[in-house]
Write a protein that binds this DNA or RNA. Structure first.
Lengths: 110, 110
DNA sequence: TCGATAGTTCGACATATATCGAAATATAAT
DNA sequence: ATTATATTTCGATATATGTCGAACTATCGA
């Protein structure tokens, strides 16, 4: 037996699981702060700040295979979006889910 | 080497871990909706709605030892407060952390 | 003091997770 | 074509987690 509310709870539990790992939360915050929400790629050629997989690993000192694994988790949970740009794969935080999460703690599921 | 920001990230990762389990999130939401925030005990004699460990287990169909285990986790993460009232132990959600979480997604750690 | 009720702790088990390095795949540049 | 760069997949390993039932502890009421 499954209902809408329970599915919603499962969804949020899944999102929180994605954010429950130290490195994953660091990656998420890095993406939130370095990327213009909603801007695909969100690459700043001036400062060199970007959000591709490799940069995340370099900035946060996590090996590529681990970054890849975590990125996949964040994506699976719907927290980030990704798009190939040549060799690189750019990621950015989905602003919609960010608002949804703020709301969750303001007026939790009734 | 550890800094303030990183400690904050660890703290939030810990909070999200507490909310990442389906049953634990259900318990948390149950407490949020059935309890007057900040009211110790938050017991409504009229409706019979309460928030003690046993009631949680009954309402959500989770065996006592599991409820106890999850309550401990929620408490450890600072999400709930508990107070003994005779035989029962009443729990309620800390409204401060609820606001802190809403804020986290509005203006994530810079 | 004894029995009932409420909650915790313990031990066991199955399952999930985080991490790494090596090998594989995809794209771009020469 | 070959090489360099970027990312993913795979396999291994260590560690953490969720759940249960049984045994234990605490508090109340008769």
């Amino acid at each position: 037996m499954s209902n809408y509310r329970d599915d919603q709870i499962k969804h949020f539990a899944d999102v929180f699981k994605a954010l429950s790992n130290h490195n994953r939360l660091r990656m998420f915050l890095h993406l939130v702060t370095c990327c213009v929400p909603g801007t695909v790629g969100s690459f700043d050629a001036e400062t060199g700040v970007s959000a591709c997989v490799g940069d995340l690993g370099r900035d946060l000192e996590i090996v590529p295979s681990t970054v890849s694994h975590h990125i996949k988790e964040l994506h699976r949970a719907g927290l980030i979006r990704m798009e190939r740009r040549g060799q690189k794969i750019e990621c950015w935080v989905d602003p919609v889910i960010l608002r949804g999460l703020a709301r969750f703690f303001q007026e939790p599921l009734k």
